[in-house]
Design a protein around this nucleic acid. Structure first.
Length: 596
RNA sequence: GCCCCCUUAGCUCAGUGGUCGAGCAGCAGUUUUGUAAACUGCCUACCCCAGUUCGAUUCUGGGAGGGGGCUCCA
């Protein structure tokens, strides 16, 4: 790789310029850390999205309290306006330098890069073995903040030493830094692990174990809505709903191959009458068994089998994360079995369905990635070259025909087939891996799947896996954060809360509730003898979309006073108009209420 | 799993080597109230197991749970 040298870009926000800034920040941090904590060994310090990190090996245990100190020293260094100077060095020169300083990690890196051009980059008193890519001087470094301390393995390998990593964020301007810090704060506020239990949507119970989700009535109601919508949509699109067991004889997983490449993620074995059973980590083999339950004709294809299939996967305790990474979850899984000439239209159908999901749930931005094999290494994949090429082409040509931009990731595919991954961008700009459409050349062969073609001969069907929500748990978590708990009316577990002022309105309120329910709305009634302000406050904290306030004046005039979640008030409405407005809003799945 | 940090009531947080305190919530009562918190009283907790100690919620060790991380290459 050529040395990137010193970056002098006209555009401070070009990727190159941002990387240079952040990577330079990492060098300055390393200098500050070595000055403040003598004896600390340096390792690597790359630029990453939004910032940088540097991994250190130190006697000192870094804590959050150290960060302001380090940051202060970094600013001093940066203000010194030291130039970054690159210098090409020989292996011997470099080795001597790092040996003299006892930097064993640098020496290890040097061995790895000994056959390449070697460069040292120096600013002020600090020199690093570095490929380059720096700002001209330390002066550019002003708007940064050290964020967290974390453990990280040397070279990312858990067999290696555990280093201490310090993360920071850095930007060309103060505004950008502030904006980023604000986004982080906003993300914290919306954290589904906080909001979920606070809104009584779900919980995780110590007694039952980590990574297992309990859906409470309100979360359950929302899940039901999500599932119902998805099922109805799938049926419309020619999918057939199936159900399969949560546990199966190990023999099944031997045939599918999961006991080989997926064993470390599977729960089991559970001995039952001298046979070993394992929990289902994936639905595919089950759907294949359904396919194989009879002799199939080409006339039955494409066969689209869909299931909200609950799977269990052992994830190491450290990687569990709220609803996003769990040990038991439900996939909106489908497997499409088809003939080669059907693949394009099937991929098209999957993509169309995925985009419908995004639209309905209020996501306007997404990124597509097509991952394919590395044809140089055919040994790492199953399936014929012809399959790979045809399928990859089906994926890309569908995207191209629709004019959907995508990134082609060569060599990123799983061993069994190429895929499209969709990352959607949430309300505060964060990407989330969601839908996936992938070919599988492995399982049809392992299960010896076939269909009888129009020629009367037996052929192997092509198989496409597809999940749109991905995992319902995870998608739900994303929704909580995307909407910050302010769910659109059609999803909100409680859509209207009817509030009274005094006991005098109990009957009128109950009558209104009945009318709202008759119109299909989800309603709660608050008849407590509390002040209206108190009732409003509670309903607001529960993020209920609408409050219907019934006071003496409303009873007198036969009206209702509406209060929206955002505080807007519309008093004296005719109940029928109020109900119609809500019914329309829910039916059209609007994400923001339209009230003039 | 590994590194660092955290764990006090349902929630948010105080505090201590000598029987832990508040606000909110809950419960009981009083208050009949017009757009984000009425009043009074009551109830409820030191994550678990060892060790040190006369005495541990506090100190030490272990465990459990939670948080930040563990691809992004000199």
């Amino acid at each position: 790789m050529p040395a990137a040298d010193i970056v002098r870009s006209a555009d401070p926000n070009s990727q190159e310029a941002l990387d240079a800034l952040r990577h330079s920040c990492a060098h300055v941090m390393a200098q500050a850390v070595q000055e403040l904590f003598p004896g600390t060994k340096i390792t690597i310090g790359p630029a990453i999205e939004h910032g940088f990190y540097y991994d250190f090996d130190s006697e000192h245990r870094f804590t959050e309290e150290d960060l302001p100190k380090i940051q202060k020293r970094m600013l001093q260094i940066a203000e010194g306006n030291h130039d970054f100077k690159g210098e090409e060095v020989t292996y011997d020169q470099s080795k001597k330098y790092w040996e003299g300083r006892g930097e064993k990690y640098k020496l290890e890196l040097l061995e790895q890069f000994k056959d390449q051009k070697l460069t040292h980059y120096t600013h002020d008193t600090f020199t690093d073995l570095c490929r380059g890519g720096h700002t001209p001087s330390t002066k550019a470094i002003r708007h940064f903040k050290l964020l967290t301390v974390a453990g990280a393995y040397w070279r990312g390998d858990e067999k290696n030493a555990m280093l201490q990593r310090i993360y920071g964020t850095a930007w060309p301007t103060k505004d950008q830094l502030m904006q980023h810090l604000k986004m982080l704060e906003e993300a914290k506020k919306r954290d589904h692990r906080k909001l979920g239990p606070a809104l009584d949507l779900f919980s995780i119970q110590d007694l039952a174990g980590p990574g297992l989700i309990f859906w409470h009535p309100k979360g359950g109601r929302m899940r039901l809505i999500m599932e119902d919508w998805l099922r109805a949509e799938a049926l419309k699109r020619g999918y057939q709903m199936v159900y399969s067991p949560h546990i199966a004889n190990k023999d099944l997983w031997n045939v599918s191959g999961h006991t080989g490449f997926y064993r470390q993620n599977m729960f089991g074995e559970i001995e039952v009458e001298k046979a070993d059973y394992m929990l289902k980590p994936m639905n595919c083999p089950c759907h294949i068994l359904i396919y194989k339950s009879g002799l199939r004709s080409y006339k039955q294809l494409p066969m689209r089998l869909a299931e909200l299939g609950t799977v269990y996967r052992y994830e190491r305790s450290g990687v569990l994360h709220g609803l996003m990474r769990v040990r038991g979850f439900t996939q909106d899984d489908a497997h499409i079995f088809c003939t080669p000439d059907q693949i394009e239209s099937e991929i098209e159908g999957c993509l169309d369905f995925a985009l419908k999901v995004f639209e309905v749930f209020g996501f306007t931005q997404y990124k597509m990635e097509v991952s394919t094999w590395d044809p140089e290494k055919p040994g790492e994949y199953v399936g014929e070259a012809e399959d790979w090429e045809r399928s990859t082409k089906a994926l890309t040509s569908v995207l191209e025909r629709r004019g959907t931009p995508y990134k082609l990731c060569k060599g990123e595919a799983a061993f069994y087939g190429p895929k499209i991954d969709v990352k959607l961008i949430d309300a505060i700009g964060r990407p989330w891996q969601l839908s996936t459409v992938q070919f599988d050349f492995n399982l049809p062969k392992r299960f010896d799947m076939e269909y009888v073609g129009s020629d009367g001969a037996r052929h192997r069907p092509l198989m496409v896996h597809r999940a749109l929500y991905g995992s319902i748990e995870r998608f739900f978590g994303i929704l909580v954060e995307h909407y910050a708990g302010n769910f659109p009316l059609w999803l909100a577990p409680v859509q209207v809360k009817v509030l009274t002022l005094t006991e005098e309105q109990d009957a009128a309120a109950a009558e209104l509730k009945a009318k709202l329910e008759a119109a299909g709305l989800r309603v709660e009634l608050d008849l407590r003898r509390e002040r209206i302000g108190h009732k409003i406050r509670e309903a607001t904290l529960e993020k209920v979309p609408y409050m219907a306030i019934v006071g003496p004046k409303d009873v007198e005039t036969g009206t209702v006073s509406a209060r929206l979640r955002d505080g807007r008030q519309f008093n004296g409405l005719a109940p029928a108009d109020f109900i119609k407005k809500l019914v329309d809003e829910a039916a059209t799945k609007q994400t923001t209420p339209v009230w003039e």
